[in-house]
Nucleic acid binder design. Structure first.
Lengths: 145, 145
DNA sequence: CTGTATTCCTACTGTTATAGTAGTATATAC
DNA sequence: GTATATACTACTATAACAGTAGGAATACAG
């Protein structure tokens, strides 16, 4: 059940964008530096976020990336599902026809319940909720995401 | 977040054992046939469960596998963690030293919360809970796990 | 109009995990 | 002693992960 770096790095990157929201574009190299992530790899991750429409790019000098919506309108679940791909823990949750014994499948219920518990947490938080906490910490010294 | 076949098949296998609990050993080939899983692959999965102590083997003719504890004493979480490996979604949950920015890591909190929600569901159910439901269904015609 | 800074795109690579298959060794009931 | 079961080890094909690398396209500053 380990999360991929794609999800972890991607989430950190979009949080950086959320912190910067309303203050102009943030560049990949800045994010990469702050987060200690490879420039080139991060580029790919952000392009996933961009393709999803959560993030918009500005090319050329002084370019970078910005959120297309304010942080309080973006749930963690949205971001996570974009980064992680389909969130179904088992195929037959979304495609019951993919398993002929689904109707009676005991295990299916438990996987569904597990998945829903997870998603409920992710749905309940927005980027704004997380960065609010960051800003509190920020009153201290060495704040990082 | 897709579950591996290891987890899914393994869970189904131990549920078959739970259904058979108290009625002598159940053989790999029987489980494999009922569940539509490769004999040889299932053998490996069950050996994982055996190594964990949840399952005991009986060799030779009329041999097979039995649970070492009654189904109501085995939680789904136990089984899942054995099959899936470490359940941490991120390294730093168990080893905070593995990430130098952990203290302030905003994302960490959300992963922890997500993981705990998941585990709470799995902890709350035992094999007995699941097979109880199976037995109800069994009054109908074509019951399967 | 030119140069530079940035994103954009595609392809390549090493490593690891998954999902098995195969063959042989070992124990035991009869 | 033999058939029937598990036990163990090794092998393989495929895919995903986690990057690296290089150059093309674009936009702005001057």
């Amino acid at each position: 059940m380990k999360l991929s770096t794609r999800s972890r790095y991607g989430m950190r990157a979009i949080l950086e964008l959320a912190l910067e929201y309303g203050q102009g574009p943030l560049q990949i190299k800045t994010i990469a530096e702050r987060e200690g992530i490879s420039n080139k790899y991060l580029e790919q991750l952000i392009s996933i976020l961009k393709a999803s429409g959560l993030v918009r790019s500005i090319r050329g000098p002084k370019g970078g990336y910005v959120l297309t919506k304010p942080p309080h309108e973006i749930t963690i679940k949205e971001v996570f599902s974009i980064l992680e791909g389909p969130l179904s823990t088992v195929e037959c949750i979304e495609h019951p026809e993919s398993c002929e014994r689904c109707i009676d499948c005991l295990t299916r219920d438990i996987w569904i319940e597990m998945q829903q518990a997870m998603l409920k947490v992710l749905e309940s938080k927005t980027l704004a909720d997380l960065i609010q906490k960051a800003k509190k910490c920020n009153s201290g010294s060495n704040f990082q995401i």
